[in-house]
Nucleic acid binder design. Sequence first.
RNA 1: GCCGGGGUGGCGUAAUGGUAGCCGCGCUCGACUCAAAAUCGAGUCUCGCAAGAGGUGGAAGUUCAAGUCUUCUCCCCGGCACCA
Length: 963
Amino acid sequence: MKNEYNHLKIEKKWQNEWEKKKIYQAKNGFKGKKFYGLIEFPYPSGSGLHVGHIRSNTAMDVITRKRRMEGYNVLYPIGWDAFGLPTENYAIKTGLNPEKVTKINTGVFRRQLKAGGFGFDWSREIDTTDPKYFKWTQWIFLQMYKKGLAYKKKTEINWCTSCKIGLANEEVVAGVCERCGGKVVKKEKEQWMLAITKYADRLDKDLDKVNYLEKIKIQQRNWIGKSEGSEIEFSVKNLNEKIKVFTTRADTLFGATYVVLAPEHELVEKLKSQITNWNEVENYIKEVKNKTDIDRTAEDKEKTGVELKGIKAINPANDEEISVWIADYVLASYGTGAVMAVPAHDERDYEFAKKYKLPINQVIIDVTHDKKNPPKDGLEEIKRNTVIIFLKNRENNQYALLNWHGSLEGITTGIMGGVEEGETFEEAVFKEIKEEASISDIKIIKKLKWITSAKYCASHKNQNRLAIACGYLAEVNNINNQGLISEEEKNKHTLVWVNEKDVLNNLTPDHQILIWNQLLNESALVNDGILMNSNQFNNMTSEQARKKITEFVGGKIVTKYKLRDWVFSRQRYWGEPIPIIHCEKCGYVPVPEKDLPVLLPKVKSYQPTDNGESPLANILKWVNTTCPKCKGKAKRETDTMPNWAGSSWYFLRYVDPKNNKEFASKKALKYWIGKGVDWYNGGMEHTTLHLLYSRFWHKFLYDLKLVPMSEPYMKRTSHGMILAEEGEKMSKSRGNVINPDEIIKLYGADTLRLYEMFIGPFDQAVSWSTESIIGPRRFLEKVWKIGEKIGSSRSNLGITRGSTSSRQSYSATFQTLLHKTIKKVSEDIENMNFNTAVSSMMILVNEMEKQDVAKKDFEMFLQILSPFSPHIAEELWYLLGNKKSIHTSSWPKWDKSKIKEDKIKIAVQVNGKVRSEVIIDKDSDENLVKNLVLNLVSLKPWIENKQIKKFIYVPGRIVNIVV
RNA sequence: GCCGGGGUGGCGUAAUGGUAGCCGCGCUCGACUCAAAAUCGAGUCUCGCAAGAGGUGGAAGUUCAAGUCUUCUCCCCGGCACCA
């Protein structure tokens, strides 16, 4: 009798069985090889598990299941990152206790994750809102405080004027409060900060030690934003004040024609009495307060600013008097909060200078290295002044270009030539147009503001040339006056006229493309180059000049980071209380470690206060306390920690989750995290904040010798999101959320897991498609059928039909495929190419359907399937007579000898087009292949009566014949 | 705007620089059925009767050979420090 594949029955059955047998619990003996696989623990939101969780959890589940079968002691833990805004906002709205809400939500998540069949070690479940857990979050904060890494600083928060509540950036939508639409302003508040910038250099440098995806390292490095630059002081005229600027382009100092301060810069207030247009300045500062940093620096927005009239600064390089401005594109938080503006060589300064008609002085000559004729090492460099002219015929808007012949064949340029001794640039323009186009009646309509240059090798003269060029736009007054071009010039080049839009398609030298683009649309020259208009520094390279000029003006070379210190305060209820007590006499006093954890008080209302303080500030019974030092009256800190706190060290707690003496024992840490977590997978969206924060905390703990290694994670990979069918984010408000419960009920967890592994490349975003799930489901039904057939067969071999000879041919072809598949799936899992692993198993099963399969071969297939679809694999495994779980069996090894193929089919191309195929021995030599190929009948029409210029044979790959 | 990623059939996608479209969905036709579903078989990039030609967002380039490498350009997605 046949059983239908009933996922409901077998999935529940095995989930219970596994829990009973504890097969996924990590062994605690601290012996043998171990593997710690980690996923980001979920935030238990009210909307339940997202299908995206299933994707990332399954991926690490597949990896850890494979490791377990490879004999590792595996730790694959789970927990809840449960403090946070949504729960608190829900509590404010409903009056329900956030603790209760969290209990309900984690209950839903736990049930859903269990239904997914994940091999988590549930005995180590943690919850960041559990006092036994956050006691240690507070404890680590106190260690930071003791080391001077936690400090108070005035910063700005988003303040909703109508809700009277501090808002997260996310809650500010288009400048207004997300919930009430009220006006949002910046409000100053003293907040706790963590000095992550003290670790900036190590956070950057130590990325070399770890195995993170390259794009993750790049993003972290960019976020940390290390840059070498100079600090230079501009004195304020007639006043004993200095403006310190940070710049990475000290080489352009002679071109600094004004200075810009951030509107918040302290000097602005200081200079108030000297500023003659203070009203205007003050209004501007007010306006800026209502903008976010992103709005401020976005380059598509027009730059704004106000001059500080009455104030002048002195450029220390040339002692020139320059104006001083405030503008919102300068941020107080980066560098020194002031910049020197060099409009000729910085896009933003250029735009600003154009708008406010400020002087623009070129000090760097851009140098283009010709790619076709690059300068050669060791040759003499000859400098030449040149003109490059784009000549326009006004009648048809066409431009004259020269197609060069001889040694310059293939090159197309504008009209060009050298400026002779004693000749002006303009004279050279007229001369060259006359020589090369034989037109004398022209008019110069534009001269390029910048001088640019090109370096190339003039190979016929065996010298390198530096052509210093001036670009011109000229117009023909009267084309009818065109004379005859001399024979000599004709031999050198042909004159052609092309439409404006075709100039770029024809023009070949990069240098001339730059000049053309600049003539049409002038913009700043931002590249390094050679100095000009810079007195004794002329002709230096930018790189040399940065150092020399910084020295010359008494500045210093410094390293700056974009990374800012971490604002650690939240004016919220649902977070870890910051364990600090304010005593009027003693100042800030840390809560003694024996008094940890500082618990959240039980209250009825979670409404924030109306003065920007946390809801905790209203609970006087909790706030008022005694100072641990002087026993006098004192108040508790009412700010709580951000949700990032608990997630900065949670992976450490998993190794010893019930320890109440320390956050984890040394022994457990050494065994499990001796060299860091083995493999941490998470979302790209966590690359800059969570990942960096937890690396920072870990380094701090390492410095206290509390963890054995300076980096927390050995390997970091990332998953892509699952979007709704229409390619949008899934969200309640859009109503396009897929509930995994329904999918599991209808198709089974095995199918859902398999589908999500098959859906597309793991690291990329993909759209959900309920329609497509049927594919993986059909696949599992086929597997079920084949398994049933083999299981019910009497023969141990599992072969029910066929003669001896057909069995042999079965052995040869099928086993080759089987072992290739084992190899591919094994390797694909390591590289997270889950989609192609599933695809190759589908190919194998399609083949299995066509023939009888030996039981032991089918068992090997079940083993490689088992990490993806653990329940059905287990069920069939037992059905075939096995007595112990498939998940504790040994991962199958592929047999190299079975994969090897002697004869291969390769394509034969003629001029790059496939014209035929040929079957050859794998290691045939070229002559043999050539002989075989040239006599192919199917190739005759393509090579007959043609001369074979080249015969290319890439062993084992392809043949290409060039005729 | 800055930083990071991506663009290939109707759809999700595959392809160490070497026969573009494997695998899956959908669709078409056929078998089974009174019928439908399920299942099984055949087909499915475009144009063309065919031979063949064209084709991986667009333009140019390197190469015997480009989806893959280089430059430019257009479009889409993620992050931007108080969402997690």
